[in-house]
C-alpha cells in the first residue's frame, strides 16, 4: 500500500473488503465454469486413463492401458504420423511465413496490402470448408492433376488421396495453405516494432539483403518465431478436422493420415467405445503439449530477463 499511517489503514479496511469481494464476484462465473468444464474433466480423464473395459463397463486396470500403448500398432502409427506432420509441415510453413513477412515489410513495395490480404485470406475459412476444397482439387482426375499434366510436369496422374505418401503431402499442403498467412501477420506485427534505423545503418554499411535478414531480422524476431512454432506445434498435435474430411475415408488411405486426435475420436465415438484407453491416448497429447509448453515458458522467461 502506498499510503502509510494508521488513520489511513483504518479508513481503508472497509474499502479493501469491498475490493476483495468485488474481485471475487467478477471472476467467480469464469472460475466456476473453468472448474466444471476444464479442471474436473481433465482430472476425470486422468482417472479414466487407468480404467479398462468397453462402453460403460469400466474397471480399474492399473497400467494395463499404458502397456497396451506399447503394443498397439495403430497408436504408434497415429503417433508417428502426427510427428511427421509436425516435423515436415511446421518448419515449411514458418519459413514461408517469414519470407512473405520480410517481403511485405517494405513500405516501397507496390500492392503491399493487396498481397497481404490475399495471403491472409485462407484464415477466414473453416477447417471443414477448406477440407472440401482440397478434397475436390486433389481428386484422381481432378483439377490439380489436369493442371500438372497440362504443364507436362508429370506424365501420369498422381494418386493424391489414394496413396499413403501423397495423401500425407496433400494434408501438409492443405495446412500450409490455411495457416501460413496467419503466422505471417504475427511476424509482420513484430517487424513493425523493430527500429528502422538499424536497417538503414546496415544498408549504408553495405550489408547485403540476405545478411540483413539473417543477422538482424531473425535474431530480433526470435521470441515471435519460437512463439509461433509452439502454437503451431500444439495445433498440429491436435490435428483432426482436416484428416477427418480431406481423405475419402477418415485417416486413410490405410491409416496414412491417422492422427492422435482422430484415433481418440475413433476409439470413443466411431467404434464400440473404449473410453479408458482413449483417455490414455489423450494423455499422451497432454504430456507432449506439456513438454512443449514448458519450453515456451523457458523462452518467455529468457525474454523477460
Amino acid at each position: 500500500m502506498l499510503c502509510g499511517g494508521e488513520r489511513f489503514d483504518l479508513a481503508r479496511t472497509g474499502l479493501a473488503r469491498t475490493e476483495r469481494l468485488n474481485g471475487w464476484m467478477f471472476i467467480m462465473p469464469a472460475l466456476v465454469l473453468l472448474g466444471v468444464f476444464m479442471i474436473y474433466p481433465i482430472l476425470w480423464s486422468l482417472w479414466m486413463s487407468f480404467q479398462v473395459g468397453r462402453g460403460m463397463n469400466l474397471s480399474f486396470g492399473g497400467f494395463a492401458n499404458i502397456l497396451r500403448l506399447t503394443q498397439d500398432p495403430v497408436f504408434q502409427r497415429a503417433l508417428s504420423n502426427t510427428f511427421i506432420f509436425l516435423i515436415v509441415q511446421v518448419p515449411i510453413m514458418l519459413v514461408l511465413a517469414l519470407i512473405f513477412a520480410t517481403m511485405l515489410n517494405d513500405s516501397k513495395l507496390w500492392g503491399r496490402s493487396l498481397f497481404r490480404t490475399a495471403i491472409f485470406l485462407p484464415c477466414v475459412t473453416s477447417l471443414v470448408a477448406y477440407s472440401v476444397l482440397f478434397r475436390s482439387l486433389f481428386l484422381a482426375d481432378g483439377f490439380v492433376n489436369d493442371f500438372l499434366l497440362g504443364l507436362h510436369l508429370i506424365s501420369e496422374p498422381i494418386p493424391w488421396l489414394a496413396d499413403p505418401f501423397w495423401a500425407k503431402i496433400v494434408i501438409i499442403m492443405a495446412i500450409t495453405w490455411r495457416w501460413t498467412g496467419y503466422n505471417m501477420i504475427f511476424y509482420l506485427a513484430a517487424m513493425q516494432n523493430i527500429d528502422r534505423s538499424i536497417y538503414e545503418s546496415a544498408k549504408i554499411d553495405g550489408v547485403p539483403t540476405w545478411a540483413r535478414f539473417w543477422y538482424l531480422t531473425v535474431p530480433m524476431l526470435k521470441p515471435v518465431i519460437l512463439f509461433t512454432s509452439v502454437i503451431s506445434t500444439i495445433g498440429t498435435l491436435q490435428l483432426f478436422d482436416e484428416v477427418n474430411n480431406i481423405p475419402p475415408n477418415a485417416g486413410g488411405p490405410s491409416d496414412a493420415t491417422l492422427t492422435l486426435s482422430l484415433y481418440i475420436y475413433n476409439l470413443s465415438f466411431r467404434f464400440m467405445p473404449s473410453f479408458g484407453y482413449a483417455a490414455t491416448v489423450s494423455y499422451v497429447i497432454v504430456i507432449l503439449v506439456g513438454i512443449l509448453s514448458y519450453f515456451q515458458f523457458m523462452v518467455v522467461r529468457d525474454k523477460r530477463r
Binding site: I42, M48, L260, I264, Y265, S268, A279, S282, Y283, V289
Partner: peptide, 13 residues
C-alpha cells in the same frame, strides 16, 4: 491450463 488439449477433455465432457 491454456495448453490443455481439447482431445483430453472431450470424453469426460
Amino acid at each position: 491450463m491454456l495448453s490443455i488439449p481439447f482431445a483430453a477433455l472431450m470424453i469426460p465432457l
